[in-house]
């Protein structure tokens, strides 16, 4: 658990972070969202003490972080940033292994961890491990950056727009993987982004920041349904917030489930139970149908969903 109590950070006369209070529960993904200069990165960098705070208290599992040794503190906090910051003179494997090395893990344990992470992030342990950062595409470099943050098996993950510099498709893929990884690992995560869609997709709770203050801290659904101010309303966009709401829930939540899953002919465009209601609605509109079969990841027909159920689910 991370607790920020009345935390303030000044740069000269400018106030970057203004007396914020924020509690991040163990295992939750807290997304700090806001426009650039709102203090979200500053907040993140105060949690691993890359920046000292001007006043207030930051507690991790009840201990003030200023009482800990800064290096030991950071070794237990995975850190991934937008520009990746990969070490250009080291291979991918050595980059990922940096924290295990600092923690003095035995070489075999480290190597196993590195290939496990490469696989987890969709990289090839045989061919990609020996590459140098300049040989990687932007998406691959970001994956390595995330793998490096996870390598020491930290309790806390700090991510500063890790997918910010990527094209829409790669970003979408990495967000999906992030969700998948998070389901497995359940790390306490603080994630900074300026992209509200990314925030809605990844967050357990979102903290909307503006001018160094937290305007609203709530679940994605509550933020969409009850924006605390005109600023938040603007940020989430009035035009399609209904669709965004549909995007928060999965088909599996609302569908009528078959008693027994059955094997069936694979269709061209299948709806999976992990897809969002938004995707289901889109397929329905496209196929002009009122009812769609739903498939599991394994390809079995597990249920069906009607247009009625969809719209009720979003309401």
């Amino acid at each position: 658990m991370i607790e920020l109590k009345g935390v303030t950070r000044r740069f000269g006369d400018a106030v970057a972070v203004d007396n914020i209070n924020l509690t991040i529960e163990t295992g939750e993904v807290c997304v700090l969202v806001g426009s650039s200069g709102c203090g979200k990165s500053t907040t993140l960098r105060m949690i691993n003490r890359l920046l000292p705070r001007t006043s207030g208290e930051i507690l991790v599992d009840g201990e003030d972080i200023n009482n800990a040794d800064p290096e030991a503190l950071r070794l237990n906090m995975g850190y991934a940033i937008q520009s990746t910051g990969l070490f250009p003179h080291w291979t991918v494997a050595r980059n990922i292994g940096v924290v295990p090395d600092l923690l003095k893990w035995p070489a075999r344990k480290r190597d196993e961890r590195v290939s496990e992470l490469l696989t987890l992030l969709g990289l090839d342990p045989a061919t990609d491990a020996i590459k140098y950062p300049h040989q990687l595409s932007g998406g691959q470099a970001q994956r390595v950056g995330v793998a490096r943050a996870l390598a020491g098996d930290p309790n806390i993950l700090l991510m500063d727009e890790p997918f910010g510099a990527l094209d829409a498709i790669t970003r979408e893929n990495l967000q999906q993987e992030m969700l998948r990884i998070q389901r497995h690992l359940n790390k306490t995560t603080v994630f900074v982004t300026h992209d509200i869609d990314e925030a809605l997709k990844l967050a357990t709770r979102i903290a909307v920041m503006d001018q160094g203050r937290i305007i609203q801290h709530d679940t994605p659904e509550a933020i969409l349904r009850r924006p605390a101010s005109a600023f938040v309303e603007n940020l989430i966009g009035k035009g399609d917030r209904g669709l965004k709401l549909l995007g928060l829930r999965t088909v599996g939540d609302v569908m009528a489930r078959h008693l027994l899953p059955s094997q069936s002919e694979p269709l061209v465009e299948v709806l999976k139970e992990t897809d969002s209601l938004r995707v289901a609605l889109s397929i329905m509109v496209w196929q002009n149908s009122d009812e769609l079969p739903v498939f599991s990841e394994a390809g079995e027909a597990v249920g069906k969903v009607t247009r009625e159920q969809l719209l009720q689910g979003g309401a």
């Binding site: 030991a72 850190y79 940033i81 070490f87 924290v99």
Partner: peptide, 22 residues
């Protein structure tokens, strides 16, 4: 590149480790 140094520090390297390893 300053982001390389920032991430070295963020990973938990001490000042001496940043100097000699990076």
């Amino acid at each position: 590149n300053p982001t390389v140094l920032e991430s070295a520090k963020g990973m938990g390297m001490s000042s001496a480790q940043v100097l000699f390893k990076v």
